[in-house]
Design a protein around this nucleic acid. Structure first.
Ligand SMILES: [Mn+2]
Ligand SMILES: [Mn+2]
Ligand SMILES: [Zn+2]
Ligand SMILES: [Zn+2]
Lengths: 147, 147
DNA sequence: AACCAGACAACAATCATTGTTGATTGGGGT
DNA sequence: ACCCCAATCAACAATGATTGTTGTCTGGTT
């Protein structure tokens, strides 16, 4: 994701209004950890903008992903995650605390040898690892960190 | 998945009854293409057993996956897919027709170089490719094949 | 034959997400 | 400063896959 200012400019350029709700969502995403759910974004924004509705948050998040400024991730955790990291990468979902960890693409050599022999053509490749994050790996388990 | 007979034996061994509904689901999975949804299994079984309820199908499928005889797959296609292929492998989801294609694990060199440097430990790695299946790749598009 | 797991109908409930409607507000171009 | 209309709001209803519930009945297994 780009800076809140860049997003505001993008919204103006595409004939969208830059409202306090949108600014607040831009900033929450910018400050946030990076794989928030819509509920989490709403909670975060509502600290300063108590009247914002969850519906509006959903709409802003959808617009951002339609503009390619945000990536919607379905990691099988129940709710969609919104990723502000636009660089190609993969993810690890912690089995203990549910945290989502970025796995840089260059750390995974993804050779698809002979896949084209199946007659298929591949446009995207998404790798989802499951295991333990560094927190749950180091510290004693069952510490409720982020979820 | 193993043969319907082996599953029946497994059910008897674990103090479950081998009912006509269970046998019918075993056989439908055995004959089926391999990545059916619960609805699809129900439709298939209902051809010969018109009175079977969708709820019962869900319960049998859940038992099979709890026993490790079936793999539940969430490929982001809306409904869970039940995979009777127990050998480690990956999947391609066709963007055109929605078909799910098995990608043998040996065709994908999955090197996770330096991932442990992040402090994480990996237990499973699931690769989901998106693109076109061989049918949609070869034939003219928009032919409604399997879904 | 008899017990009880399992199946059944017929629901209600869940949970994330989207849709609706009608009223209000405020951003931004003039 | 004004005005238009996009955007937001509340307050819901609806979606769709899946699970839960309850009370009844049936059929597998011993
Ligand atoms: Mn990420
Ligand atoms: Mn498969
Ligand atoms: Zn963790
Ligand atoms: Zn296809």
């Amino acid at each position: 994701m780009r800076s809140p200012e860049a997003l505001a400019q993008r919204f103006r350029e595409t004939d969208r209004k830059v409202t306090p709700q949108r600014i607040a969502v831009f900033e929450a995403l910018d400050k946030g950890a990076g794989h928030s759910t819509a509920e989490q974004v709403h909670s975060s924004v509502a600290e300063n903008l108590p009247t914002i509705s969850l519906k509006t948050v959903y709409e802003i998040l959808r617009e951002l992903s339609e503009l390619g400024e945000l990536v919607m991730l379905d990691l099988g955790t129940g709710a969609v995650r919104y990723d502000h990291n636009l660089v190609l990468h993969h993810h690890l979902v912690c089995n203990e605390c549910g945290a989502v960890v970025d796995i840089p693409a260059h750390l995974t050599d993804l050779q698809l040898d002979g896949v084209q022999d199946l007659g298929v053509s591949v446009s995207t490749a998404e790798l989802v690892l499951r295991g333990s994050c560094s927190r749950c790996n180091t510290q004693d388990p069952k510490q409720p960190s982020n979820k």
